[in-house]
Design a protein around this nucleic acid. Structure first.
Length: 240
DNA sequence: AATATGTGCAACCGCTGTCAA
DNA sequence: ATTGACAGCGGTTGCACATAT
């Protein structure tokens, strides 16, 4: 497909926006909206390409943008959504009012990636050296797209998390949005039918509390993801 | 004080998905 | 079914500023 070059080859300006350009863009969008980004700069009299205008508006000039540091709650939301959605920054940002995908992405690369590493190191240090290969494999499995997509579409999120304090426990939780909530019995039934072989104690805990403390059962949880991945793929289809 | 290194973030680039013709 | 235009997305870059040496 033939494409016209976007910016500089057409004589468009690049680089940081000036306050004057910002004002022109804001005034134009407030007055006429932004129906057609490609036509907008010409109509507004801006020496920029439509793409650049769109980015500037969405990431910086939009009136509903929240500025300032991310809260702990927002951080935790990003961690959890990233477990499920991966690098789908726009999808993550959509659940954080006032935050843009660019902001979330930058924050992830600047702060959260480091924190995540610290967390996994902390978790790893809680295991014996013989478990490390299993941990590595389990991580790969947890990141496996097909498994993630399948489980998220069913609203079953394999989520292993820990808090910052070293003495905190790991908790595997089955979560789902309210509108599609499964009862605890249903959650257990889904896991059983999916071929996930929960030990009796875990299943009972799950049915009673909706969550299961894996602190004393780490081996089980990592083996669970290793051994059941194929069966889970096949059997979860029956629920989809 | 000068230089090196790290960090934060705005902006750009190239690709993909969607939709109308 | 195909093509082309466009919007949107995620990865990456580059610059300004802060901090360390």
């Amino acid at each position: 497909m033939v494409r016209f070059p976007c910016c500089e080859k057409m004589g468009m300006k690049k680089g940081p926006w000036t306050p004057e350009e910002d004002q022109i863009l804001i005034s134009y969008i407030q007055r006429y909206g932004h129906g057609n980004w490609r036509a907008l700069p010409k109509q507004a009299g801006l020496p920029r390409c439509g793409k650049s205008c769109r980015l500037r508006w969405i990431n910086y000039l939009r009136p509903d943008i929240k500025r300032g540091n991310f809260t702990n709650k927002e951080e935790e939301t990003i961690f959890q959504l990233h477990q499920v959605l991966g690098n789908r920054w726009s999808a993550i940002a959509a659940r954080l009012p006032g935050r843009t995908d660019n902001e979330v992405k930058n924050y992830w690369h600047g702060h959260l990636k480091k924190k995540l590493k610290q967390r996994s190191t902390a978790i790893e240090q809680g295991f014996g050296s013989t478990d490390r290969q299993e941990i590595k494999e389990a991580r790969i499995l947890l990141q496996h797209d097909q498994f993630r997509d399948r489980s998220s579409s069913l609203n079953l999120k394999p989520l292993i998390s820990s808090q910052d304090s070293p003495e905190s426990t790991c908790l595997a939780t089955i979560e789902q949005p309210d509108e599609l909530a499964l009862s605890r019995e249903q959650q257990g039934a889904v896991l059983e039918a999916a071929g996930v072989k929960l030990p009796f104690s875990a299943l009972e805990t799950l049915k009673i509390n909706g969550s299961y403390n894996v602190d004393a059962n780490r081996d089980f949880w990592f083996k669970l993801f290793m051994e059941n991945s194929n069966e889970v793929h096949e059997n979860l289809g029956n629920f989809g």
